[in-house]
Design a protein around this nucleic acid. Structure first.
Length: 114
DNA sequence: AATTTGACCCGTC
DNA sequence: AGACGGGCCAAAT
């Protein structure tokens, strides 16, 4: 297979993971990449969202690991993302999502939150 | 072919 | 919580 095919496959896997994020829940870029079988490719996920044109893709459910929205504060995308998240019942405060993204993280499962 | 760029992440302070 | 430095990787210059 060519490099281009591999890239297309990776893109498809990432999109699939994002589409699988349940309503009202958020995921970090790195975690999306991990679930797609591409550890360390968080920036690739970001690239995809930046160039994404699919209106059905729940891109707004992807945030940074610290819970913050990745776009520059005040930008149109920033506003839209906070709005969409709030519409799903997610608490967003000054561009930051309250609930921590790492839900299935090993540490959290063993030690619990906090 | 080298450099820059970006919707990133982590450890440390 | 916030600031800094270093690392990361693919695509665009």
């Amino acid at each position: 297979m060519t490099a281009g095919d591999a890239a297309a496959l990776a893109h498809a896997r990432i999109l699939q993971v994002i589409r699988a994020i349940p309503r009202g829940q958020v995921l970090g870029y790195g975690e999306v990449a991990g679930r797609a079988g591409l550890p360390g490719r968080a920036r690739l996920v970001a690239r995809l969202l930046a160039g994404n044109d699919d209106p059905d893709l729940p891109w707004h459910r992807v945030v940074r690991t610290d819970g913050r929205i990745a776009l520059p504060e005040g930008s149109p995308g920033w506003c839209e993302q906070s709005q969409r998240l709030r519409a799903e019942g997610v608490a967003v405060e000054k561009g930051r999502v309250k609930r921590a993204p790492r839900v299935n993280d090993l540490d959290v499962q063993i030690w619990g939150p906090g």
